[in-house]
Write a protein that binds this DNA or RNA. Structure first.
Length: 459
RNA sequence: GGCGCGGUGGCAGAGUGGUCAUGCAGGGGACUGCAACUCCCCGUACAGCGGUUCGAUUCCGCUCCGUGCCUCCA
């Protein structure tokens, strides 16, 4: 295939295929964002980083890309959090939306073009539900509105599950008002003291799945090119989105009538197990960025292929940190050179266009950094960095943080000691120079002698 | 039970029907007063068993192991 073709693994066809946009002048994608009732963990961050990288690659290839990623700000979990803390729902959702966006910015994740909130799209959801009722794909029962799965024979295309299989394996009790065990909620009733909206089906709130169907359609139109999210959303969430949107738009027999391509990222694991709140083995981004730079976390999240599981470990972080230091050091040594036109080296672009093969890109980056300094190399590194969302910082700034936590007073003292040591070295008084080095080490300062003089950093 | 995904050198992690991934860690060397930094060199990996093939880590089958979804979940 030509280097102009982006290949991607489509979960809907379970194959790697050439990406052919509906409109090459305007690519549209949607990815399910977080439910905001708590700090985002590394797993949430992986989704954001992966799709941010996809958007960067798509933008490199296509003139216009619209990326929509939602905020789910009405949900039973949020209501529970509000009950438990006594804090109003809106306060909780605003707080954690804000924290989420700040955390993602720290990871160099560009804000989506549109970040719709579920609570601002209730009207669209109600309209969608009414359409589904009219077309006999949904029905009202005891204040609920339910999607009738048996009326949609194409149901199960994404997850590869027939309705029967799903029932057989179901571990949940079937609510008595459901006509079919597989039916799922579009609207559920709220009590007067709960959050809710008036609707033709009574006072209530939307089900989770209908939110994304409504927001994706409103902001992108149907069908659009790519729908993404974590692998755990494939069933039931994405399956249900397809059912709702296709059935409401006369595409009941065409699962691709909603989104042409489905992309799913793998999980972050801890010691081989999925990172999740129920297992209690999760690490929040908020905490992670206390110990590691955002860019280090970002590169670590890109160090495995996006569909593979990624085991979170200090060793993985260390590896990313070492590489970034190496790259920034290289850039620093080329600070006098002017970067010219950005050209991404072929092997790297090919890797990126081949289903976002970021581990291969990292390998190529390791080779690239060994080349001799040149304006061309500098621009290559910077343009690759831009595609990956790294290396955009001023190198001096990157290394400056190594001095964090050292007071100005200490800096003076350190520099004085280093000068003294140089003097001792010049006089071949090595006993004294070693003593000074030990003294610095005792202060937590490590030194190294380079051609350009002695450098130090906090250990 | 149903539907998936994966098992690559100490670790992480790509990839391929027959020459190299790459990195981290480790070993050796150069440099250094000694270190650190930097640079150079090194390690004969593809779960097991069958099959296809001139040839399989790569294709097919089976077995074993791990893990995910089927319930809220990125």
């Amino acid at each position: 295939m030509t280097r102009n073709t982006i290949k991607l693994h489509n979960s809907l066809t379970r194959q790697k295929e050439d990406f052919i946009p509906i409109d090459a002048n305007h690519v549209k994608l949607y990815a399910c964002g977080p439910t905001v009732y708590n700090y985002a963990h590394i797993g949430n961050a992986r989704m954001a980083v992966v799709f941010d990288a996809w958007v960067r690659v798509l933008r490199h290839r296509y003139p216009k890309v619209t990326y929509v990623s939602n905020i789910t700000d009405v949900d039973d979990k949020i209501m529970k959090a509000a009950d438990e803390t006594g804090v109003p729902i809106s306060e909780i959702t605003e707080k954690y939306t804000c924290i989420y966006n700040e955390d993602m910015a720290t990871l160099n994740v560009n804000a989506p073009d549109i970040q719709p909130k579920a609570t601002e799209h209730i009207g669209e959801m109600i309209a969608l539900i009414e359409t589904l009722i009219t077309k006999d794909f949904a029905y009202e029962a005891e204040g609920h509105v339910l999607f009738n799965v048996p009326n949609n024979p194409a149901y199960g295309a994404l997850s590869g599950r027939s309705r029967d299989e799903q029932i057989a394996g179901a571990r949940v009790e079937v609510a008595p008002y459901k006509r079919d065990a597989a039916d799922f909620v579009l609207w559920k009733p709220s009590t007067p003291d709960q959050v809710g909206w008036d609707s033709p089906f009574g006072f209530g709130r939307p089900g989770w799945h209908i939110e994304c169907s409504a927001m994706a359609e409103k902001h992108l139109g149907l069908p659009f090119d790519i729908h993404g999210g974590g692998a755990d959303l494939k069933f039931p969430h994405h399956e249900n989105e397809i059912a709702q949107s296709c059935c409401a738009n006369n595409k009941a027999d065409d699962p691709a009538g909603f989104s042409r391509v489905w992309l799913h990222n793998g999980f972050v694991t801890v010691e081989g197990e999925k990172m999740s709140k129920s297992l209690g083995n999760f690490l929040t981004v908020h905490d992670a960025i206390k110990d590691h730079k955002g860019e280090v976390i970002r590169l670590t999240l890109l160090s495995a292929h996006y569909r593979q599981p990624l085991d979170w470990s200090e060793q993985a972080l260390h590896q990313s940190e070492v590489l970034l230091d190496k790259l920034y050091k290289k850039l620093e040594s080329m600070s006098e050179l002017n970067a010219n036109d950005a050209v991404v080296p072929d092997p790297i672009l090919s890797a990126l266009y081949d289903d976002l093969n970021t581990p291969l890109v990292i390998a190529e980056l390791n080779k690239l950094v060994k080349q001799e300094n040149s304006a061309a190399l500098k621009s290559q590194l910077l343009s690759v960095g831009n595609l990956l969302g790294i290396l955009q910082e001023d190198p001096a700034n990157w290394f400056a943080s190594d001095e964090d936590g050292v007071s100005d007073e200490d800096v003076k003292k350190i520099e004085l000691l280093i000068a003294e040591r140089m003097e001792a070295k010049d006089n071949k008084d090595f006993a004294r120079s070693d003593k000074i080095r030990d003294e610095l080490l005792a202060m937590g300062i490590e030194i190294k002698d380079t051609r350009d003089g002695t450098q130090w950093e906090k250990v």
